[in-house]
Nucleic acid binder design. Structure first.
Lengths: 172, 172
DNA sequence: AAAATATGTCAACATGGCTGACATAAATTT
DNA sequence: AAATTTATGTCAGCCATGTTGACATATTTT
């Protein structure tokens, strides 16, 4: 009678499906899509003994050259101790260079070197190709739909941060 | 003259932008969207001392009740040693139950218990709500566009696996 | 002069991947 | 019937990347 946890509870044989009022289709598509999306740069990174954490740092330093350590932490939402490990390696290998803040000399501004810019591009290219392939079947207007959806999936308070990244039409 | 790595290379001050022929907009949107998308269940999982790995296992056992260990490994693309750790905990806590394979008695078929089904639903609900919110501004036809795009982002050889999941219109 | 801020660093810990090696039971092949 | 292959489990150790807490230094602000 006692429903002990160790005891074997009754197995449910019916599959969880959309009747349960949950958007399983898009939940799973996001999982599989993101997994494969990140697998492209992972292969390149392995050659450099870098990981996904290095990729993120390198990417945003390339996108916002001169950003401070505090600003980078705010974008990545990780602790400074986590950042320190990978940032040090990127600096030691000459992919990122530091400069003292012009107004506040406590700050460290981060810039990519030519080498760092090249690697960031090499990492972005296969991801971009995958996106380009995925959009081939889509109408031109569909891109807007997809961008709007993905932006709406982000926590509202973080959307301005995305909009302020340079170079594409979102921020304009 | 020597361009030693330790030496400070010249900083690049211009931002990487779409002129570089790379789809930075969608690359970044996927990063931010996925990060926030996974943060919803993470909060619930922490109460159970579970992590994202438990979530994935629990999800697919609920979606494909009776699947074998080998089939689960093929969906998740992890090693059996990685799976073993989290699967054992889910069995010990009574979220998943095992049954001997009916034809091949070496196999272990995995089923959710009522408890496991409830937790899977509780984890899916906030993700589903986020998706629902994000689709509010979209036209009904836009859902198809988004699903097609995400499906096309998945490696081609894995798409049949997604299509064969039960309960939604993709597989039909 | 004192307090707050930006950054760096040391130490310890958790999660969730990985590889390699080996054990068992059951099915398949010879 | 014996040998081999297969499905699963398990032990041990390694690595990457996140965490918390504590403390040091330089610089700016009050």
């Amino acid at each position: 009678m006692a429903d002990r946890n160790g005891g074997s509870a009754k197995p449910i044989k019916t599959a969880l499906s959309r009747e349960d009022g949950v958007d399983l289709a898009i939940i799973e598509l996001l999982f599989f899509a993101y997994r494969d999306f990140t697998s492209d740069p992972d292969k390149i990174l392995a050659e450099y003994d870098f990981g996904r954490a290095h990729h993120r740092v390198l990417h945003f330093v390339n996108r916002m050259p001169g950003l401070t350590v505090a600003e980078l932490l705010d974008v990545l939402k990780i602790t400074k101790q986590s950042l320190a490990r990978v940032l040090k390696q990127l600096i030691d290998t000459g992919h990122i260079v530091q400069a003292q803040g012009p107004n506040d000399r406590r700050q460290r501004q981060l810039y990519p070197s030519a080498k760092g810019r090249e690697l960031a591009l090499a990492l972005a290219r296969p991801q971009s190709s995958r996106i380009h392939e995925a959009l081939k079947a889509a109408a031109p207007a569909d891109r807007t739909v997809i961008e709007k959806f993905l932006r709406a999936m982000v926590n509202p308070e973080l959307r301005p941060q995305i909009d302020n990244l340079p170079g594409d039409s979102r921020g304009i």
